[in-house]
């Protein structure tokens, strides 16, 4: 369970995020949507303790993220390319993350075997460093790396952007599978309303840092969102 209390983030006199209260129960697949500058990445960065809250705090499974590091073993994320190490090959990167999360080579290999389709033969054994892969392939690596080590909370910022259509569809399948596992909380942000309504049980809309909608996904949700963003 992830609990947000009176969380604000201010730069100068601009408040970029202000969430009074938000609870994400364990096992939920949670979608965050909003226009540019709505505060999605800011929220995820606060959740990962990459920026300091101006006031308030977030607790991840009872651990207050800006005062203890105990949330790190069960939380993983892929936000952007700063989560990749450019001079490693994809294999080396996966093993590196694996070792940090207490997984040996065989464990990592077993996990990777399940993503052969997703990689589409463009990741493993390519004799390329991560820095030389295309943006889309880099993203695939980052997303799969965030699944290593049985994390209980997975945070993916804009996972669908930059991916080709086939991979987008496969990724949706993967996220849905994970969401079915009630041990794993998965947080996804996206600009694509169709994708996010398809994979998330719950959707929260941010606008200029404020929480403006909190919807349980149903058949009409997509229409509701389209009306909101269209008007």
């Amino acid at each position: 369970m992830i609990t947000t209390q009176n969380l604000t983030k201010t730069y100068g006199d601009v408040t970029v995020l202000n969430i009074e209260h938000l609870e994400i129960p364990k096992g939920q697949s949670f979608g965050l949507v909003g226009n540019n500058g709505a505060g999605k990445t800011t929220f995820f960065s606060l959740l990962l303790d990459l920026i300091e809250p101006t006031s308030g705090h977030i607790s991840n499974h009872g651990v207050q993220v800006n005062s203890s590091e105990a949330w790190k073993p069960f939380t993983s994320a892929f936000i952007d390319e700063t989560f990749l190490i450019g001079y490693l090959t994809p294999e080396e990167y996966f093993y590196f993350i694996g070792e940090l999360r207490g997984q040996n080579k065989a464990d990592v290999d077993a996990l990777l075997a399940g993503f052969e389709d997703f990689f589409h033969g463009e990741i493993l054994g390519q004799k390329k460093y991560l820095r030389d892969l295309s943006k889309g392939n880099q993203k695939k690596v980052g997303i799969v790396a965030s699944f290593i080590g049985n994390p209980e909370v997975i945070i993916l910022d804009e996972p669908f952007a930059n991916l080709d259509p086939t991979t987008q569809i496969r990724l949706k399948g993967i996220i849905k599978n994970m969401a079915a596992d009630k041990e794993v909380t998965i947080l996804v942000s996206s600009h694509d309303l169709i994708h996010v309504t398809e994979v998330c049980e719950r959707i929260v809309v941010l606008d200029k840092g404020q929480l403006v909608k909190d919807i349980k996904t149903e058949a009409e949700t997509l229409k509701e969102l389209e009306v909101f963003f269209g008007g």
């Binding site: 590091e69 790190k72 989560f83 990749l84 190490i85 450019g86 940090l100």
Partner: peptide, 13 residues
């Protein structure tokens, strides 16, 4: 520096 956010959110002491 290029991947400091990764280092800071990974399971690293």
């Amino acid at each position: 520096s290029a991947y400091y956010p990764l280092m800071m959110s990974q399971n690293i002491q």
